[in-house]
């Protein structure tokens, strides 16, 4: 476990050693604010909740999370430090997990810094804080799933731009999996069972279900499984690619 902690600390510190962290946090806060107030009509709705705030998170993450994840392994491969890291006495899992958790904590920090909007809504009215807590949890889990996907695709290439684009595309497909456009297209060629299975993979459906304030174990398990599966794939991809 100590290997994971050490790698976690190193990674997290490296975010703040470069402008990456500050740029990311500022953009995240600005965009989430702009979306909430202008697109979401936070005031105009006249309701004391954070629905307009959380609705846009999947779309914000779609571009911001791959920007964080793209460097996770691609940079290690490009600079050769992957050889240093994996010849230290740590297991592959400690390395994959340490790097992932650092990136996730970093995004959690950015998410936590949106707390003024929570204060605002409590000042303006009496929101259901249980729902807000659940939504924060759902948002964080979804970011984790995006990151795990990004981690795997970052391991697959040494080019960060390629990693970014691949991650955006895969995340976009998983987001839209619950939408009629995708489901309709698949329904035309595949049986109902497949359509249901793909609809079940939708990020949005699970995120919205948690956002209603009902924390269903199935939604939690969905995101946790998603993260574990993609991290497992990350380890496999690293093993395959380092030989080449």
């Amino acid at each position: 476990m100590s290997g994971t902690t050490t790698i976690f600390k190193r990674e997290l510190r490296s975010y703040f050693a470069t402008p990456v962290a500050y740029v990311f946090i500022v953009i995240f806060l600005l965009l989430s604010g702009a979306f909430t107030f202008y697109l979401g009509g936070f005031y105009e709705r006249g309701q004391a909740d954070l629905q307009p705030f959380f609705t846009f998170h999947p779309w914000l993450y779609l571009f911001l999370v791959p920007a964080v994840s793209m460097r996770l392994w691609a940079e290690e491969r490009k600079s050769g430090t992957i050889e240093l890291l994996l010849t230290l006495p740590v297991t592959m899992w400690q390395a994959v997990l340490g790097k992932f958790l650092a990136a996730w904590s970093f995004i959690a920090l950015a998410l936590a810094l949106t707390f003024p909007i929570w204060l605002t809504v409590n000042y303006l009215g009496n929101p259901d804080n249980g729902v807000i807590c659940a939504s924060y949890l759902g948002s964080l889990l979804m970011a984790g799933a995006f990151l795990a996907i990004g981690s795997c695709l970052s391991a697959a290439t040494r080019n960060q731009v390629v990693a970014f684009i691949l991650t955006v595309v895969v995340c976009f497909l998983l987001l839209l999996a619950g939408y009629p456009i995708v489901l309709g297209a698949i329904g035309a060629i595949a049986p109902q069972g497949v359509v249901d299975a793909i609809a079940g993979l939708s990020f949005l459906a699970h995120f919205e279900s948690i956002g209603k304030g009902v924390v269903d174990l199935r939604d939690l398990i969905y995101f946790v499984l998603m993260i574990v599966a993609w991290l497992y794939a990350t380890a496999i991809v690293i093993d395959m690619k380092k030989a080449a």
């Binding site: 100590s2 190193r10 430090t81 240093l84 010849t87 006495p89």
Partner: peptide
């Protein structure tokens, strides 16, 4: 790996870290 000290080709290290941070990191992993 514990018994071994290895310098990879090109001596890669984490560029954004200071020398002291880097050595502290290695010491901690070790």
């Amino acid at each position: 790996k514990r018994a071994l000290g290895y310098l990879p080709e090109g001596a890669p290290s984490y560029g954004e870290m200071t020398v002291r941070e880097f050595l502290d990191f290695i010491a901690s992993v070790r």
